[in-house]
Amino acid sequence: MQMKRVVIAGVVVLAASALAVANPNPAGGTISGKVTYEGTPKKMKPIDMSKEPSCAKMYATPPTGESVVTGPGNVLQDVVVYISAGAPDDAAPSSAAVFTQKGCRYIPHVLAFQVNQELKIVNEDQTSHNIHPMPKLNREWNKSQPPGTPPISEKYDKAEFIPVKCNVHPWMHGNFAVLKNSHYAVTGESGSFTLPNLPPGKYTVTAWQEEYGDQSQEVTISGGETKTVTFVFKAKPY
């Protein structure tokens, strides 16, 4: 009888440990949430591309500016959410971050990548662009990329948010988010983000929007839990 009880207890312990193994991230927590705005954001104006017919003809209706992109339910797109403190710096991944010039716009509008990660810049247009990122901490360079030329490969060795412009096409404007670790996300149409695989610890989560600046929250992860964080930016009407 007693023997049987021991066996049952053993089975229960085994089953419990098996369950723990089945969890893909035994100690990994997740921070997820949504970025929204309150108030009235400024209206994005249609871009006049008439000076560049090869791009203008790619649009049935002129595209609008992208410095503040909103969605249904007051969500904000193109917000970089990242761990600004609490996580160690990560080595750069071997894959390249790709920034494409298409239809005289930057795709994506906000490109997040890591310090020393390869940045690949592609021109898919039938016109010459110049890529002119305007960093304050990193080195400032400015390169021409005529149609049909190979991608430009660059990297940045300091974390920084860098505005990017094309001097030939003044409406073209994008952003590089150069980050220290791999825990980051850029919000899409739903305005939501997920930062998975976070070991237990105390983190500062920061959300950055190119016009509204940044805001931070402290989040403590103690196990395989998912914590929800919401960022609300005050929209500026102009």
Partner: peptide
């Protein structure tokens, strides 16, 4: 080499 700090880009790669 381009004229750094101005809109004039470098054409060395192309």
């Amino acid at each position: 080499t381009g004229v750094d700090g101005t809109p004039m880009p470098s054409f060395a790669d192309v």
